[in-house]
Design a protein around this nucleic acid. Structure first.
Lengths: 106, 106
DNA sequence: TTTATGTGCAACCAATCGGTTTCGCAAATA
DNA sequence: TATTTGCGAAACCGATTGGTTGCACATAAA
């Protein structure tokens, strides 16, 4: 199933998982220890994250290590960038207003 | 109800609404014309967006104009920034690897 | 070999979601 | 005044979500 990354990061638990594995790969059991939910619930979240390619798996014997695919977050960054342009323009305009006011005081 | 902005932008229709009103405020009817859903469905989306303060209303007679609160998107930007740091570091490291290789060729 | 451990998957469940239709109400228009 | 228009709110509905429990199956350890 093709998943939407925005829907994937909508859940707070999934964002917490992302934060956990950002620096080092972890197993589902290791991740589940940080929450009050079952390992299976964490597995379901990992499946959603895997389906939108936000995380990848590395098998080590019977353990599976999940790690974050940082680059995928750039899709969100790209979506944001169109609006970032707008709010930066707005700040620039505010700066201009402020300096105009400053000059009038002189 | 206190809403989560990540949950608000998870829905593709809501992201489309955000894009629509980014440049100019619009009424629910005007927005609904861009989709194949009813005005009431759009109203529900606007309610979600209003609850997390992503949009604000301006009443003009019987018309209500909805406009985007750009600054609120900075909450997403702020969340992203921690990971942006990481992927930029990664790129920097890649650059270093590349220039090391380059120097070795000399 | 037997037992313990790490995992994914399926079935089930209550809650939520995104949509619809119907309604009521205030403002604009005839 | 009577009618039309723009809107929110409520009731309803099927699909999805996030959780659970129970299971099957490898791999590691005894």
């Amino acid at each position: 199933m093709r998943r939407d990354i925005f829907q994937a990061i909508a859940d707070p638990t999934r964002r917490a998982i992302i934060a956990l594995i950002a620096l080092q790969a972890l197993t589902p059991n290791a991740i589940a220890e940080h929450f009050q939910t079952s390992r299976q619930a964490v597995s379901k979240h990992l499946r959603v994250l895997t389906e939108c390619e936000l995380v990848t798996q590395q098998q080590h014997g019977r353990e599976i290590h999940y790690s974050l695919q940082l680059e995928r977050l750039q899709e969100v960054d790209h979506w944001l960038s169109q609006y970032r342009k707008l709010w930066e323009t707005r700040f620039t305009q505010l700066d201009q207003v402020l300096s105009t006011l400053k000059n009038q005081k002189k």
